[in-house]
Design a protein around this nucleic acid. Structure first.
Lengths: 269, 269
DNA sequence: GAGTCCCTTCGGTACGCACCGAAGACTCGC
DNA sequence: GCGAGTCTTCGGTGCGTACCGAAGGGACTC
């Protein structure tokens, strides 16, 4: 009896051989497997379930949801949701904050949002007409403007990014970066000091592929500061409690002045 | 008998209700589930298996492997590998090319490489000493220089990127982008026309987080052209048949001249 | 044409896990 | 305190699937 080439001597423990010698089924934890494949599989497995994926996508709005809200959203029993949420938290994708009888859950940070973005960006094309029609009519407001974790997305986010690119504040030619002029603009227009743009290892500017527009909008530290700034000044306001936002009259005027952006022409109003 | 809140009327088909009314187990394909969660889960599921993850990581070197090679690498039976490879191909992550009795497999494109990068970048920290010691001593050459899909990585890739950044050819301050000076450099130093740097929707420059260095190296179109250029000129050569590369004498001199990069000091030789 | 090699298909096994309901733990409000 | 509300734990069920060996189909070699 010869050992097959793919089954190295260290591949199974003696105990396992005794039990599953003839009918070898699942591979044992393995000694000589290629590095990182187990870790990668474990990370992917966190998102490889429709319910958990739905949770994460819902949390992409950057806010904290309760366990119950998420369960209702994904249409599963509270007990099921609870188990999934524990798993996502232990896997490092979510953080939780217990408050009274509620368990609030949130993405563990911008890095998780970026991870989700890069995955969703590689999904099949947006599924054509049927879904589009329904989705668009059901959420025209979302397509017009919304938050994406901590920055602006939708037509609003893309239009602002385009205007900044046209003015040389953002460089989309050679990649995606904030220019020197862009840093000055943040100081002059929004009062954001350059130091506030460099926090740790997070990049100042990052392109984030927009779901609805299939174009880049500004993310990274600068994207977050921009979103904060516009919300603070009431140039942009949240619609209801969701992630949809709208441009206010004052905001339209301000963007016209600061970026030469015509809100009406860009379909933002 | 009341219907629980999370179980909408459209949630189950009549047939399913008849069969699994009391002991409801798996949720049916679902009508009213949040958009994209199913697609995201399906994509993640492709990588949520150690064997498939190992295949993809192996293919990150950009070359085409045969099904048998991959099976041996991941230590599974050929039949098992075959099934996984079919699934990865149908899922769009791999492309295959049948040639004689061989089935060659390759990543489906730079977008898949980028997807894998962004996932691996978010893995747990490199696991500390035990694995580090073994891995480092076993693959010092890999740490020194290697290809990462179609560009350079390892100390070599990071050192070149740093040198380009210091010379103002790459902007890592505001994000990650090739500057105007950088485009000129590609023309002057490598004879790469600006038009060759803009192919389709792939960004010219992208930061790719290095596994071993935990720092960015140059990826995107520019990264690919750079790698091609250095290999063509024999400034960098492949070691054996793997993904490891080494800097040649001529290469060290050239990089010294073109980028002021001291190969010996950077630990590249 | 026979033998070899590479891969695929098929049947069968067993494990992982997503799901639910019921019961318990804990908080809040009256 | 007592009830209502939120979440967790536990037991139980069944599907999905990762795995293997054996057998079969092409494609090269001689």
């Amino acid at each position: 009896m010869t050992t097959p080439a793919y089954s190295t001597a260290t591949n199974r423990t003696a105990a396992n051989q005794a039990v599953t010698d003839r009918t070898a089924t699942h591979r044992t934890p393995a000694a000589g497997t290629p590095p990182y494949s187990t870790e990668l599989a474990r990370l992917a497995a966190l998102l490889a379930d429709r319910t958990r994926a739905a949770f994460c996508l819902a949390l992409l709005d950057g806010r904290a949801w309760t366990a119950g809200e998420l369960a209702a959203y994904a249409q599963v029993a509270p007990s099921t949701a609870s188990e999934h949420l524990t798993r996502l938290t232990e896997g490092g994708l979510l953080v939780e904050r217990r408050q009274g009888r509620h368990r609030y859950l949130q993405l563990a940070g911008p890095h998780v949002a970026e991870l989700l973005e890069s995955l969703t960006a590689h999904l099949d094309p947006p599924q054509g007409a049927p879904r589009g029609l329904r989705a668009v009519s059901a959420s025209a407001a979302l397509a017009r403007g919304r938050t994406c974790y901590d920055h602006l997305a939708g037509r609003l986010g893309v239009a602002i990014t385009d205007a900044m690119t046209a003015r040389g504040l953002v460089d989309q030619d050679g990649g995606f970066a904030l220019t020197d002029a862009g840093r000055d603009w943040f100081t002059d227009a929004l009062g954001v000091e350059p130091a506030d743009l460099r926090t740790g290892r997070r990049p100042q500017a990052r392109g984030c592929l927009d779901w609805t527009e299939r174009r880049n909008h500004l993310a990274g530290t600068a994207g977050a500061r921009l979103c904060d700034g516009l919300l603070d000044r009431r140039w942009v306001r949240r619609i209801g409690s969701g992630r949809a936002v709208r441009l206010t009259d004052a905001g339209a005027a301000a963007l016209q002045e600061l970026l030469g952006l015509d809100g009406a022409a860009a379909g933002l109003r």
